[in-house]
Design a binder for these strands. Structure first.
Length: 259
DNA sequence: ATGCATGAGTA
DNA sequence: ACTCATGCATA
């Protein structure tokens, strides 16, 4: 559909030089909910190089063309599982390669040689763990460059690869986490849905709380939040965040209405 | 498989 | 404010 709300891709331009995160590269550790599935093996392939971004991007570009040309992998699926996995992996690899390329282009729009560690390609393709490590490297690199998932997604379009256009942040997120296919959604319902069930246990504590909070100027608000939370069986913080996001949503809508 | 809307973490 | 992750609908 052409719903004209281009909210998620705030038009990126081919030339983005300034990383968005000023100086914090460690700040992203907060969101390692599942991200840090720690690939221990730390392939020598990537660990060994103190890889220049370029070398890798080139390798990846090479991998990309190889894979997209001959879709069939020269490797034998020994089991059905392995076969499925390989399918998944090679498509993921192709995509990851493109993502890397997109990043490389953003970082160094000019340089473009075609050489590189072709050697590592096979390893990556054949070993699921390598792909995992690979994805991890991708993430690290991306963050180091100060490039967001959304950036990568939109930069993908600048590559002008035949079948490849821009992708949403959501999709890049999934690619990065290798969640493309296969793997079932393992993330349960949102907190509030879960809490809703648990909440029955703690019922009744809310009223007492509300009663004791009527002095501070903010207490009216806090009280209301508490009341709402109580009514809905939600954590107060969830209610607070909801209002927070709601305000932001309103701002966005006003902004897009004017511009 | 993908985008949108939104929950939620960090600063 | 900005970013990432994910449920849901759908192309």
């Amino acid at each position: 559909m052409m719903t004209m709300n281009g909210k998620q891709h705030f038009s990126m331009h081919p030339a983005l030089h300034e990383p968005k995160y000023p100086g914090l590269h460690s700040g992203s550790e907060g969101m390692r909910r599942v991200c840090l599935t720690a690939p221990q093996l730390q392939g020598n392939i990537f660990g060994g190089f103190d890889e220049s971004l370029l070398a890798r991007a080139e390798a990846l570009a090479a991998a990309d063309s190889i894979i997209s040309h001959g879709k069939s992998h020269p490797f034998k699926p020994d089991s059905l599982e392995a076969g499925d996995l390989l399918d998944h992996l090679s498509s993921s690899l192709a995509t990851m390669g493109q993502l890397h390329q997109a990043m490389a282009n953003m970082a160094h729009p000019h340089s473009l040689s075609v050489h590189g560690g072709m050697a590592c390609i096979n390893d990556v393709e054949s070993d699921p763990r390598e792909l995992e490590a690979f994805a991890e490297r991708f993430k690290q690199r991306r963050i180091k460059l100060g490039v967001t998932q959304a950036d990568v997604g939109s930069a993908l379009a600048n590559l002008k690869i035949p079948g490849v256009g821009s992708l949403s942040q959501s999709t890049i997120c999934r690619k990065q986490r290798l969640r493309t296919e296969g793997e079932k959604q393992q993330a349960g319902p949102f907190q509030w849905e879960r809490e809703e069930k648990k909440a029955h246990l703690h019922r009744g504590a809310g009223e007492a709380l509300v009663g004791g909070l009527l002095c501070h100027p903010a207490s009216a608000l806090l009280g209301k939040i508490a009341a709402i939370a109580e009514k809905l069986d939600l954590k107060k913080n969830v209610v607070r965040v909801w209002f927070c996001n709601q305000r932001q949503k309103q701002k966005r809508m006003k902004y897009s209405a004017v511009h």
